[in-house]
């Protein structure tokens, strides 16, 4: 029995360690969001900043060693109640967030950061199969890694969240009453700007580029999150819900991001404009 038996609910499948596929990725992020987010290039002089929030000093230090080896700049915070302050001061490109923290829980920290910024948040969790993961995702985390993880797995996950390639295609997309400015990374609904995180933006653009196509959760995981094989489809479900809560008039009866029962999701028809 060579193959490790995977813990229930943990992410199955391997990560794409190559540069992410050129689906509807967009570089940078929604311009209005505060903080210096992404715009990551392959330039030698630039090091993406990772804020590590974990109460275990040894793990934090080890993480910082690994991250620095992989070409990231890391800043460590041990307490939940110090996280937001450090976030303001450090202006990270990605936040690595443990869920169990002294001072303030990881979920609360996640919500606070998400309230003012769309910076990608990757949760570190010891429990892949619990509601914690769903709660974490619902409170704004983009992705999660289950401990114990291999360094390459973590780095790939961070890269997937930080590095964003320009995708060819139309600069302006419309989907229902929404207008998406792909280059400017902004979404407007009847002229009113809608605030989306980069991940939600990517998800929306991915759907809007091919409004005739139904995307399975697996395909969305690959194209938006960068997973090569089947992973936890809860990621997709939770983020579709978050996206709907921001762009739909009535999230209970979605018109922009439609569920295709038994298959996946698709963009609402433009005829509904």
């Amino acid at each position: 029995m060579d193959s490790p038996v995977t813990a229930a609910g943990s992410v199955v499948g391997s990560l794409d360690l190559r540069p992410p596929t050129p689906c509807p990725r967009s570089s940078g992020t929604a311009g209005r969001l505060p903080g210096k987010i992404a715009g990551v290039t392959q330039g030698e002089d630039f090091r993406a900043r990772v804020l590590v929030v974990d109460d275990d000093a040894s793990l934090s230090e080890m993480l910082s060693i690994v991250l620095r080896q992989e070409g990231f700049d890391a800043h460590l915070v041990e307490r939940g109640d110090e996280a937001l302050e450090a976030f303001h001061a450090y202006k990270p490109d990605v936040v690595l967030l443990d869920l169990m923290l002294p001072g303030k829980g990881g979920i609360d920290v996640c919500k606070e950061i998400r309230a003012e910024s769309g910076v990608p948040i990757v949760m570190l969790t010891a429990k892949g199969d619990t509601v914690d993961v769903v709660v974490g995702l619902e409170s704004g985390a983009d992705d999660y890694v289950v401990k114990p993880f291999k360094p390459k797995e973590l780095v790939a996950r961070i890269r997937a969240r930080v590095r964003r390639n320009d995708a060819p295609g139309a600069d302006t997309l419309t989907i229902g009453p929404l207008t998406i400015d792909v280059a400017g990374h902004s979404v407007t609904r009847d002229g009113q700007p809608v605030s989306l995180t980069p991940l939600e933006f990517d998800l929306l653009v991915c759907l809007a580029r091919k409004p005739w196509q139904v995307f399975t959760r697996e395909v969305l995981l690959e194209q938006v999150w960068g997973y090569r094989h089947a992973a936890d489809t809860r990621l997709v479900n939770v983020h579709v819900q978050r996206l709907r809560s921001k762009v739909e008039t009535d999230p209970e009866n979605p018109e922009i991001v439609l569920t295709v029962r038994g298959v996946g999701y698709k963009a609402g028809t433009s005829g509904q404009q």
Partner: peptide
């Protein structure tokens, strides 16, 4: 799970390095 996994992660990272 939590208590064992965190040190194991550290060891794991260190081992990888």
């Amino acid at each position: 799970s939590h208590e064992l996994r965190t040190p194991l992660t550290t060891v794991r990272l260190a081992g990888s390095v």
